[in-house]
């Protein structure tokens, strides 16, 4: 599989811009409490991509690479935000809106699910100690909204492999986070 990633410096410049754009979009969404319950990180990533696409000539094949990089940024943006929120919570003593929990609609039309971003971050870090590739797959799908086909393209492996790794990774994370919760209580 050949993926033409333009010249490296160009992509870097693009990512710098993407980072600024993502931060701006995310902070807007996260600041507005009314909107907090509809925040979908992957939408932000795709929107950022579309915005940049209008301003630059991004090779169509670069798209998945862009999205995979953007997913890392998105993760960082959300985690930073959750941390700040947590510090503020400690300081003020006021019961805050649960902005550190990102709500994702996991299936079309079904009940949305709340994911605790900081817990996920901790679990993901633990997972990547064992298996960085699996952590990447989760990151790309969950934070970047890449389909598994796209993840397979980025990782240069078969779709079957991605699906296997994904199943394992997400189960492991779920278990890890569940146990983490018990420990906290």
């Amino acid at each position: 599989m050949v993926v033409a990633v333009a010249d490296g410096s160009e992509l870097n410049a693009l990512m710098a811009e993407a980072y600024a754009e993502l931060r701006r979009l995310a902070s807007f969404h996260l600041r507005s409490e009314r909107r907090a319950h509809t925040l979908r990180p992957t939408e932000l990533v795709h929107e950022t991509y579309l915005r940049l696409l209008k301003q630059h000539s991004i090779d169509a094949e670069c798209r998945v690479h862009f999205l995979s990089l953007a997913s890392t940024i998105m993760r960082r943006v959300l985690v930073d935000h959750a941390r700040r929120k947590k510090r503020a919570k400690r300081g003020s003593g006021v019961q805050p809106v649960t902005l550190d929990r990102i709500l994702t609609e996991t299936r079309f039309g079904s009940e949305p699910e709340i994911v605790d971003i900081l817990a996920l971050e901790e679990a993901l870090n633990a997972l990547s100690l064992n298996d960085p590739d699996q952590a990447r797959i989760v990151e790309m799908h969950f934070f970047g909204g890449l389909t598994f086909e796209e993840v397979a393209q980025v990782q240069a492996v078969s779709l079957r492999t991605v699906m296997r790794e994904w199943k394992f990774a997400r189960t492991w994370l779920y278990q890890h986070m569940k146990e983490g919760n018990h420990e906290n209580r």
Binding site: T42, T104, E105, T106, R107, F108, S110, E113, V115, L120, V138, H141, F142, G145, T147, F148, K167, R170, T171, L173, Y174, Q175, K178
Partner: peptide
């Protein structure tokens, strides 16, 4: 646990 995890972390884009 896998059963219990349901659609944990799985996104709508693909599902849609």
């Amino acid at each position: 646990v896998e059963q219990e995890a349901g659609s944990f972390l799985e996104l709508d884009a693909a599902a849609f």
